[in-house]
C-alpha cells in the first residue's frame, strides 16, 4: 500500500481495477529499473570518459556481440511483458458475460450524461452544473452500454482505472465488477467542445441489498 501511495494511482474500486493496478505497477517498476540502468550507464560514460587530457578516444566502431545483446535483451523483455501480461489481461478486462446482473445505458451528450436502467424506469439526467449520479451495486457484474448522441466523448472513472469512448454511431459495451462501497467521481476524457471540463458525474457504489431497494424505489430512495 505504501508503494501504491508513492506511485499515486487511486485505490481501485473494481475487480478489473485491481488487475489493472497490478499490471500498472509491474510496468511502472520495470520501467523505473530500465530508466535507472540506462541513466546510470549514461552518467558513468560521461563521468568516466570525459576528456581531461590528450588521451585519445578508442576508435572502436562496432562490436557485433554487444549490439546483438542490445537487441535481444529488450526484445525478450517486451515479448515477455506482452505475452504474459498485456495480452491476457486485455482479454480478461474486455470479457463480456452473457447475463449481467445489472445493465446501465450510459448516454453522453454535450455536456453531461444520462444513466438509464432498462426495465426499472430509472433515468438520471445531468447538466454541466448539476452532476448526475451513477448508482452501482458492489459484488455484481454490471454491463454498461455506452453511446453518444452528438460528438466523441469518453466515460472515465479514475477509481475504476478504466475509460471507454462514447462515439456516435455505435454502442460500446463493457463489464465492470465494483467491489468497494463508496462514492467516486467520473468525467469526460475526450475533448468535446466548450464545457468539456465541466462534464463530471459521481458514482455511488452500494451494498447489494441497498442497491436492490434503490432499484425497487425507481431511484426515488434518498441516498445519504
Amino acid at each position: 500500500m505504501a508503494l501504491a501511495a508513492c506511485a499515486g494511482l487511486p485505490r481501485p474500486a473494481t475487480v478489473q481495477g485491481h488487475w489493472m493496478a497490478g499490471n500498472w505497477y509491474t510496468f511502472w517498476f520495470t520501467g523505473a529499473a530500465i530508466y535507472a540502468f540506462t541513466a546510470a550507464l549514461i552518467v558513468y560514460s560521461v563521468a568516466r570518459w570525459r576528456k581531461r587530457s590528450d588521451r585519445p578516444a578508442v576508435q572502436l566502431a562496432d562490436n557485433f556481440l554487444i549490439e546483438i545483446v542490445g537487441v535481444l535483451i529488450p526484445l525478450a523483455l517486451v515479448l515477455g511483458l506482452f505475452f504474459m501480461l498485456t495480452w491476457p489481461l486485455e482479454n480478461k478486462v474486455d470479457r463480456l458475460v452473457a447475463t449481467p446482473d445489472v445493465t446501465v445505458n450510459v448516454t453522453a451528450f454535450r455536456w453531461s450524461w444520462q444513466f438509464a436502467y432498462p426495465g426499472h424506469d430509472i433515468r438520471i439526467l445531468g447538466t454541466p452544473t448539476t452532476e448526475p449520479q451513477l448508482v452501482l451495486p458492489a459484488g455484481e457484474t454490471v454491463q454498461i452500454n455506452l453511446s453518444s448522441i452528438d460528438v466523441d466523448h469518453a466515460f472515465w472513472i479514475p477509481a475504476f482505472l478504466y475509460k471507454k469512448d462514447a462515439i456516435p454511431g455505435y454502442v460500446n459495451r463493457f463489464d465492470i465488477n465494483p467491489d468497494r462501497i463508496g462514492q467516486y467521481w467520473g468525467e469526460c476524457a475526450e475533448f468535446c467542445g466548450l464545457q468539456h471540463a465541466r462534464m463530471h458525474f459521481t458514482v455511488r457504489v452500494l451494498a447489494r441489498d441497498q442497491f436492490a431497494r434503490w432499484l425497487a424505489s425507481h431511484g426515488k430512495l434518498a441516498l445519504r
Binding site: 494511482l9 488487475w19 489493472m20 499490471n23 500498472w24 510496468f27 511502472w28 520501467g31 523505473a32 530500465i34 530508466y35 517486451v78 511483458l81 506482452f82 501480461l85 498485456t86 489481461l89 486485455e90 478486462v93 469518453a154 472515465w156 479514475p158 482505472l161 478504466y162 475509460k163 471507454k164 476524457a189 475526450e190 475533448f191
Partner: peptide, 17 residues
C-alpha cells in the same frame, strides 16, 4: 518508458487522454 506503459492497453485504459 512511459511510452511503453501507454502502449499496453490495460494501462492505457486509465492513462489515455
Amino acid at each position: 518508458v512511459t511510452g511503453m506503459m501507454v502502449a499496453s492497453p490495460p494501462i492505457d485504459f486509465h492513462a489515455e487522454d
